[in-house]
């Protein structure tokens, strides 16, 4: 059994290292050197690249390419800071490093419009990391969960703050999308037609009225709302347990 959350970070570090070793050099050569020097101008034409990246598998590939090495970076950077003699703020540094990697992955998923990845892949990893950080599995086994909560968790509050932020951001996003979908589908029915056309004019709302136009948001909401709520609950339990 694991004695700390290190196995999870090491797993992500190794996976990211493999991705970086196999895929990154050729990508730097192609997009960073071949493209700007004009070695293959027709290959980097806008229409061609746009059609290439419109395929979901290509976007999934790009997500893995970008996200995995970020965790590799986080792990190495964290340990390098300690190797260089940093003796304070271990929790802060670890949270900042892995938090940055999670944030980067989140941004990548949104930019690549792979919204389903957020509840299905990113958040489970986030929860596992969080739970292992506040109480490694060996500790859970030795003392029952109820007892642990009553005593308060021993680790620092930063992770709780991070989770609180995650929960608030996710719930905010859910609200935003729910508002978009609601306005698009029921705006006229609720007598908010004017507000709706105003939003379309400003480009906040798409003009489509069919359900298909809101499909990404409709998929997104059921994934986001529970995870956002769970984040908040975990953070509150954590903070409350600490204070006692």
């Amino acid at each position: 059994m694991a004695k700390s959350s290190e196995p999870l970070w090491w797993f992500l570090f190794a996976g990211g290292g493999v991705v970086a070793a196999f895929l990154v050099p050729v990508h730097i050569l192609l997009t960073g050197i071949a493209a700007p020097l004009g070695w293959a101008p027709q290959a980097f034409d806008y229409d061609r690249i746009a059609s290439l990246t419109s395929h979901p598998l290509v976007r999934l590939y790009l997500f893995v390419l970008i996200s995995a090495p970020l965790f590799h970076w986080a792990h190495r950077f964290r340990h390098t800071l300690f190797d260089l003699g940093l003796r304070v703020g271990r929790g802060l540094v670890a949270t900042a490093c892995y938090g940055t990697a999670f944030l980067g992955s989140l941004v990548a998923a949104v930019v690549l419009q792979l919204f389903l990845i957020i509840p299905v892949v990113i958040l489970p990893f986030l929860y596992v990391g969080f739970l292992m950080a506040i109480a490694p599995p060996t500790v859970w086994r030795r003392r029952p969960l109820r007892e642990r909560i009553r005593e308060g968790f021993t680790q620092d509050r930063l992770l709780a703050g991070f989770f609180l932020l995650c929960g608030l951001v996710l719930l905010g996003l859910t609200g935003l999308f729910a508002f978009q979908v609601g306005m698009g589908l029921f705006g006229d029915l609720l007598g908010l037609g004017e507000l709706r056309s105003e939003l379309i004019q400003r480009g906040i709302l798409t003009s489509g009225q069919s359900l298909n136009d809101f499909l990404p948001q409709l998929i997104f909401i059921p994934g986001l709302a529970p995870t956002g709520l769970l984040s908040l609950i975990l953070a509150l339990v954590f903070l409350w347990g600490k204070r006692r």
Binding site: A20, V24, H27, I28, T31, G32, T53, L62, L65, I66, P69, L70, H72, W73, R76, F77, H79, T80, D83, G104, V107, A108, V111, L112
Partner: peptide
């Protein structure tokens, strides 16, 4: 250890490109 910084910076640029 420092190579990871350059790799991460490149990926951030790539992400900017996708955006």
């Amino acid at each position: 250890e420092l190579t990871s910084v350059f790799i991460a910076a490149y990926l951030a640029l790539l992400l900017l490109g996708v955006y």
